[in-house]
Nucleic acid binder design. Structure first.
Lengths: 235, 235
DNA sequence: ACCTGAACACCGTTCAAGT
DNA sequence: ACCTGAACACCGTTCAAGT
């Protein structure tokens, strides 16, 4: 009706605008909502127009991840290696938590963009500056693994219950009984973590605590190796 | 020309046959080659026929991952918790290495099938049997993270160079020079890991060693916590 | 020289129509 | 009652044709 195409209204496209729109869209509707066609429509352009700014969909995703990495806080001054690495990784975690799609996007990317390399280089530099040998630095970076991006795989998380209605109390009890038979240890550790509250079997632990638990365990291990004068392949 | 449709020839479909065909296809051509339509064609049936055996594509992928988990060796007798967990995780790793697509598939799955839960329960049981409290068991499972499946994220791996031709010696030197300027620490630790051989910047380290380095570091840390009588949230 | 409509070769999944 | 062809609502990407 009153609606009509108004081509003059649309802001000029740029790589930055494409990427920021994609990030906002993924923030709001998940990574599954990112398609070249859908994004083009949101930007009021023909799909093909995006290819002027990103080579293909993979590069779009790489660029989105780069934007998240650029949100990481710059390294703070005056910290030793351990406090420095810890604070940087926790800063990465805050950024990744702001963009829930980023975890899977980071895991599935294989290209190492300059932004990715820059962050990894700077973290490696923190270890080197703390007196770690190049060898030991290499191994501890691998040991941290994806934790450098601020996340641990969500081992116990439930499937996001989008569609399923919550079970009735009876169903819940029957499920719990069968679960207790088949997976007694999982039930036990899930109850330990949630003080007995089992709304959604296995879910609901304090993920932030688990992340810091593992991070500190690793950092303490690294410290011990370095103090012991670790060289090459021991044993 | 002699070719003709021979519907009587095709073996009867079953969930198992669908899943095993999908695994073989993914082994040969990667996870990207898995589509309901392509798989149906390989099985000589109409796409819709698959939906009799798997509810949808997600369930297909879950079933494929289950088949990989079923390849894990059963727990060995007579090992203490540490040797037991170590050998089971290394067995998981061997299975996952046999199916290169499994790593990404496992990371992207959110559903916990009975097979997945059974493996996790049995690993948790190993810690409990070794005298770990339910709380500590919960935290160490999270600390292991995806390492329970036998892989660490491939932090430094290069993009699989399918398309790009190998660079000339000159190009390689120019790239190396720029890389050394921008990412000195990555260069340093990459050279440390490969004894100076840099064919493909950052690649080619001993992934198996890195995996065991991190695994043992974690297991040692767990042992120390347990011996110290770790309770709830220290500090 | 620049831009893009239409096309290509796919997807996962639904559902009505046919046997 | 069982099965499936055709359709629906999408994809990423190419490329020739139009301005």
């Amino acid at each position: 009706m009153a609606e009509q195409s108004e081509p003059t209204r649309r802001a000029p496209l740029s790589r930055d605008r494409v990427l920021r729109t994609a990030v906002a869209r993924a923030d709001a509707a998940g990574i599954g909502s990112i398609s070249m066609r859908g994004l083009a429509q949101e930007l009021g352009v023909v799909p093909m127009a995006l290819y002027k700014h990103v080579a293909n969909k993979d590069e779009l995703l790489d660029g989105m991840v780069d934007l998240v990495i650029e949100e990481f806080d710059p390294p703070a001054d005056g910290l030793d290696w351990k406090a420095g690495v810890r604070s940087r990784v926790l800063s990465a975690r805050r950024a990744v938590l702001r963009h829930p799609w980023a975890r899977l996007a980071i895991e599935s990317r294989t290209r190492r963009t300059p932004t990715v390399l820059g962050y990894m280089d700077s973290l490696a530099g923190a270890f080197r500056g703390g007196g770690f040998s190049a060898h030991l630095t290499h191994h501890v970076m691998h040991a941290l693994g994806n934790r450098i991006w601020g996340f641990t795989p969500e081992l116990f998380d439930e499937p996001r219950g989008d569609d399923a209605l919550p079970p009735t109390a009876e169903e819940q009890e029957a499920m719990a009984r069968e679960f207790a038979q088949r997976y007694p240890h999982i039930l036990e550790i899930a109850m330990a973590a949630t003080d007995g509250d089992l709304s959604g079997v296995g879910g609901g632990c304090d993920e932030q605590f688990e992340f810091e638990f593992a991070l500190d365990l690793l950092l303490d291990g690294f410290e011990r190796l370095q103090r012991q004068g670790w060289v090459r392949r021991p044993g």
